[in-house]
Every structure is written in structure tokens, then in C-alpha cells.
């Protein structure tokens, strides 16, 4: 059981000409293994800053982040080890993979660096990971990213994230660059892996429907503050905060739309 505690985290960026921008203000939540938390909010609400702070790409201006009760390391070997326990899947599978390297290289590197398997088992582990993300390992392992479709690339990015056997995964808009017809497949895969491996997943998105579908809890961010945090169904079906209601009203929802329009004129 691993959990990460974000306690009263604020992040202020100083921008020349614009003064101080409070990207996050007093954000607190706990993400534990075995659980998926959806984090929603519009562009600029601070979602990606949370991801950067969790992965220690940015340091909080105030507040702290604890892994199993201890402050997360900020440098050196301890930080590298931390980043193998908490991994990231990025939004854009077209830029998050290195065009010069084969798929094998992308999966091998984290395996070798983390040392989770002995050197003579690396190849078998690469194949196992590609199988796990439902790619035909034999067909893709020696290809380069440009030879794969967007959906396949995002599966490679997931396999790479899983390689060091992390306890926690931060997925920042993992399907927003993919065609709709592929999105559910990739999210279902993530959800299956989450359940099998007992991962803790922070699913960052502006899509309320998939956030509800795949999360246990939902956190709503607005202008760097947590305005609502509760079970996925409570937040989406019984939103308490006006901002959550606004997000919900703005999201396309044929169910509600056709019920409403049956009662009135379109």
C-alpha cells in the first residue's frame, strides 16, 4: 500500500510584467494505490501544475508532498528512485516518444535504469509489457514511433510508464489527442491495468464523462483551488459547487439534452 499526500500545496509563478500568478492555492488530497482519482477543470485551472509537483518537476511554493508519510526526495538517487514509484503518461504520444529510437529502446531504458529485472530477462520483460498493453510485441518492438498509430503510441507510453513497476501513475490528458474511436480502448486498458496491479492513478482531464466513468473520486480544480472533492457519482450527478455545475452544463450530454427537449421546444 503506497499513498501520496499533497498537503496545503501552493505554487506561485513570478511572471515578468504580470507579477505573481497563483497557479495552485492550498491544494490537499491523498492518492493511494488501488484507487483512481479524476482531476477536472478548464484550461489554466492548475491541473498540469499538480502533475508537475507530484513528479517533482516543480517545487511547491508552500505546503508539502509526502510519500508514505515522508517528504518526497528533491534530488539525486532518491529522487530518481521516487520517480520510478510514481510515473507519468503524457498527453501527446506524438512528442513524448523519441523518434530516433525503437519501441524496444523506450521500454528497455526504464527497465535497465530501475533494475527491476536481471539483465538476461530484460528482453522477455519488454515483450511482457507490450503484451500487457495489448500490442503485438513481435510486430512493434523493432519499429519506431512514427510507424505506429496514435493509439499504439499511447500504449507504448503506458508500457514505458509501467516498466519500473510503479505504485502510482499520473495520466495527464492521456487520450485527448486520440481519435474518439480509440479513446475508450486506451482508457479501458488503463483501468484494467490499474485494477490488476492495484495502481493508484491520477487521471487528469477536462472530459467529465470519462472522469466519472473511470474514477472512484473526482477533484474539481478552478483557478488553482480545489472547489469540490467527492465520489465520482456525487460530484457529477449531485454537484455542490457552482463551478462544477457550470462544467457539467457545458459538457455535451445527449441523455439530459433529449429529456429537456422533450419537455420544451428545441
Amino acid at each position: 500500500m503506497t499513498s501520496i499526500d499533497v498537503q496545503g500545496v501552493s505554487k506561485t509563478y513570478r511572471v515578468r510584467g504580470a507579477g505573481a500568478i497563483n497557479a495552485l492555492e492550498d491544494v490537499s488530497f491523498t492518492l493511494s494505490s488501488g484507487q483512481t482519482i479524476g482531476m477536472v477543470g478548464q484550461s489554466g485551472s492548475g491541473k498540469s501544475t499538480v502533475a508537475k509537483i507530484l513528479t517533482q518537476m516543480e517545487r511547491p511554493t508552500s505546503g508539502q508532498v509526502l510519500l508514505d508519510g515522508r517528504p518526497v526526495p528533491t534530488r539525486g538517487a532518491a529522487l530518481r528512485a521516487y520517480r520510478q514509484r510514481l510515473r507519468m503518461v503524457f498527453q501527446d504520444p506524438f512528442s513524448s516518444l523519441n523518434p530516433y529510437h525503437s519501441i524496444r529502446h523506450h521500454i528497455e531504458r526504464p527497465l535497465v535504469l530501475s533494475g527491476v529485472v536481471p539483465a538476461d530477462e530484460v528482453d522477455a520483460e519488454v515483450h511482457r509489457l507490450l503484451d500487457k498493453v495489448q500490442l503485438d510485441a513481435g510486430a512493434v518492438v523493432d519499429r519506431r514511433p512514427h510507424e505506429l498509430s496514435g493509439g499504439q503510441r499511447q500504449r507504448v507510453a503506458i508500457a514505458r510508464a509501467l516498466a519500473p513497476r510503479p505504485a502510482l501513475l499520473v495520466a495527464d490528458e492521456p487520450v485527448s489527442m486520440l481519435d474518439v474511436s480509440l479513446r475508450m480502448g486506451v482508457l479501458s486498458l488503463l483501468s484494467d491495468i490499474q485494477a490488476q496491479d492495484g495502481l493508484g492513478v491520477l487521471y487528469i482531464t477536462h472530459d467529465l464523462a470519462t472522469a466519472r466513468y473511470f474514477s472512484d473520486e473526482i477533484i474539481v480544480l478552478n483557478q488553482g483551488r480545489v472547489v469540490e472533492h467527492g465520489s465520482a457519482d456525487d460530484v457529477i450527478l449531485r454537484p455542490q459547487h457552482p463551478y462544477t455545475r457550470e462544467l457539467r452544463e457545458a459538457s455535451p450530454d445527449p441523455e439530459r439534452f433529449f429529456v429537456d427537449s422533450a419537455g420544451g421546444a428545441r
Binding site: 475508450m184 470519462t210 466513468y213 472512484d216
Partner: peptide, 17 residues
Amino acid sequence: TLLSSFPRLTAERQVTR
């Protein structure tokens, strides 16, 4: 198929979590 590839925002869940 296309209609079913979208999760519903407010409908009953097709999967339980």
C-alpha cells in the same frame, strides 16, 4: 457502435467501480 463508444455523463453506469 459509435454511440456506445462515448461514456454517458449522467446516465446509469455501464460498469461499476
